[in-house]
Amino acid sequence: MSGAGGPGAWLAGPVRPLRVAAYAGLFLLGAVVGTAGSLVQGAWFPGGLLLALLATAGLFLGSGRATRNQLGVVCSAVGWLVTVLLLSGGRPEGDGAFSAGTGPVVYIIGGMTLAVMCATLAKPAQPGGITTRLDR
């Protein structure tokens, strides 16, 4: 059992409606960036792909910094991934947001890689030089 401020203490605490709204907003923002990136990466191939990946990296890094935990990155990444996968499926008529080629593949794999990288970034040191490691 951990103390009052230990790992997992937020599970036992009261639900904060503003925090839930922030995570839902990050999910929706991930969906918006995923939609915009899906359209831009195919429209202007080399530059659009780079722009879409930079926007995706900014979303994941910014949501992690804004919430100060990995759950913010996960919420925006899930919104991004769900949208990108739905758009990559296409329709029965053959229409789809993604064209054939390596660009969409690089966008999907690159975006997932960026999500994992941003979710596993080390947290900065706490003020006063206190480390979060228990073995020191």
Results as ranks from 00 to 15, higher is better:
Ala31Glu: 02
Met112Asn: 13
Thr67Leu: 15
Gly128Arg: 00
Ala55Cys: 15
Pro104Ile: 07
Leu81Trp: 11
Ser99Lys: 14
Leu39Thr: 06
Ala21Ser: 02
Ala4Cys: 01
Leu134Asp: 10
Met112Ile: 09
Ala55His: 09
Val20Gly: 00
Gly3Pro: 13
Phe60Lys: 06
Leu50Lys: 03
Val82Phe: 09
Pro7Ser: 12
Asn69Val: 02
Tyr23Phe: 13
Ile130Gln: 07
Val74Cys: 07
Ala36Lys: 01
Pro124Gly: 01
Asn69Ile: 03
Gly89Met: 14
Gly79Asn: 03
Thr56Leu: 05
Cys75Ala: 15
Phe60Cys: 10
Leu51Tyr: 04
Tyr107Glu: 02
Glu93His: 13
Ala122Leu: 07
Gly94Tyr: 04
Gly3Gln: 14
Leu121Glu: 13
Ser38Glu: 00
Val106Cys: 03
Gly64Asn: 03
Phe27Val: 08
Gly37Val: 04
Leu121Asn: 03
Phe45Ser: 14
Glu93Ser: 15
Gly48Ile: 07
Gly37Gln: 00
Cys75Pro: 02
Thr35Phe: 15
Pro127Glu: 11
Leu26Phe: 15
Phe98His: 14
Ala9Trp: 10
Ser38Pro: 02
Trp10Tyr: 14
Val32Lys: 05
Gly3Ala: 06
Ala66Val: 11
Cys75Trp: 08
Gly128Asn: 02
Ala9Asn: 07
Thr132Met: 13
Val78Arg: 00
Gly90Asn: 03
Gly8Trp: 03
Gln70Met: 12
Thr120Leu: 14
Gly6Ser: 07
Ala22Leu: 15
Gly128Glu: 01
Leu51Ser: 14
Val116Gly: 11
Gly110Val: 07
Lys123Ile: 01
Gly42Glu: 12
Ala97Gln: 12
Leu134Met: 13
Gly13Phe: 08
Val40Asn: 02
Gly47Trp: 13
Leu50Pro: 07
Tyr23His: 12
Thr132Gly: 15
Val105Arg: 08
Leu81Ser: 14
Phe27Asp: 00
Ala57Tyr: 14
Leu87Gln: 13
Thr67Asn: 10
Gly111Val: 01
Trp80Ala: 01
Phe98Pro: 05
Ser76Lys: 01
Arg19Asn: 11
Gln70His: 14
Gly13Met: 11
Asp95Pro: 11
Ala52Thr: 06
Gly62Met: 12
Gly94His: 02
Gly13Leu: 07
Asp95His: 11
Thr83Glu: 02
Gly94Asn: 06
Ser63Lys: 01
Gly96Arg: 15
Leu54Ser: 12
Gly90Phe: 06
Thr131Asn: 10
Val20Ile: 15
Ile108Met: 11
Leu61Lys: 13
Ala4Ile: 10
Val40Pro: 05
Leu85Arg: 09
Ser76Asn: 04
Gly58Thr: 04
Val82Ser: 04
Leu121Asp: 05
Phe45Trp: 04
Val106Met: 08
Ala52Met: 03
Ala55Asp: 06
Leu134Ser: 15
Ile130Thr: 14
Ala125Ser: 12
Ala4Met: 07
Leu71Thr: 13
Met112Pro: 00
Glu93Arg: 10
Gly72Thr: 07
Gly8Thr: 04
Asp95Ile: 12
Gly94Arg: 04
Val82Met: 06
Ala55Val: 09
Gly111Thr: 01
Leu39Gln: 09
Leu87Met: 14
Val73Ile: 06
Gly64Cys: 07
Leu29Phe: 09
Gly6Thr: 06
Arg136Asp: 06
Gly30Ala: 02
Arg68Tyr: 09
Ala52Trp: 05
Trp80Asp: 01
Trp10Val: 13
Gly48Arg: 03
Gly101Ala: 09
Met112Tyr: 08
Thr83Asn: 06
Leu86Trp: 10
Ser88Gly: 10
